[in-house]
Amino acid sequence: MDDTALWIVSLLASTVRLATPLVLASLAGFYSERAGVVDIGLEGKMLTGAFAAAATAAVTGSPWAGLAAAIAASLLLALVHGFACITHRGDQVVAGVAINTIAAGLTAVLANAWFDLGGRTPSLDGGQRFLGLHFPLAEAVRGVPLLGRFYGEVIGGQNLLVYLAVLAVPATSWVAYRTRFGLRLRAVGENPAAVDTAGISVPWLRYRAVLITGLLCGVAGAYLSIAQGAGFQENMTAGKGYLALAALILGKWRPYPTLAGCLLFAATDALQARLQGVALPVVGAVPVQIIEVLPYILTVLLLAGFVGKSIPPKAAGQAYVKDR
């Protein structure tokens, strides 16, 4: 009994930890895509952020400097994305692929050259990372069955960036539905011509959206390398950017459902790690790959309209050209 409770608590805690980068990255995607700029490049921006954070933290010893560097690096790539897709009306998907490819190569090359550890950055110690915050009374209530551990290890005990991600969801929802910027953001993703004729600059609006995307991707990357992890490894995002995109699709481009998607994916990930080689009742040992691919299969089925239907913002993927 107690074992089961412990198991559940640790599963939940691990779900929260695994969901954090997905939440940050999919909210990042939310801004860009709701503004009509498809972003396949979340992966690359996150990866670059992860490298910049770890490298900076290793050199300066400050996680805050690491976070700032991650955001700056990711913003730079966001600007490249904006320059190609907004200013030059390039193909948004191709631009995203280019960013992912450049990021994959560049982080590996620079990590290898600067630290000479075969594409890794040095391991970071506690002072160079964002560590779990101890909540008041966590020790005191630890003895309370289930809830005590839940309070100490799931609600509390997480690092700062986790709480940032948790706050980012209502904040995004508020921005999108309660502010002028949000109204315009949603409008420009549906009908940029309506925004243009209303006297609002389409490029500037889209640039701002893309920059927010860069900012959040930077935080997501920093989380991977200097909060959850203790250093950068080659390709350490390992598809999380694409998974975040899938969660955004699953959430039909809305903040809270997207959060639910992220939690679902994170839970399957956490479960998968715990079921490795475990024989389940009735079915026996299930190949972990089956659990691992659930998010991908779900996304495919959803996009194909077999499970509900997810319709993207109408102008997503199209460059805005004044036409006559």
Partner: peptide, 14 residues
């Protein structure tokens, strides 16, 4: 790093 090729590849795509 041999991954320099990947950078070049990305720049070409861009």
């Amino acid at each position: 790093s041999p991954r320099l090729v990947v950078v070049i590849q990305g720049v070409v795509i861009l």
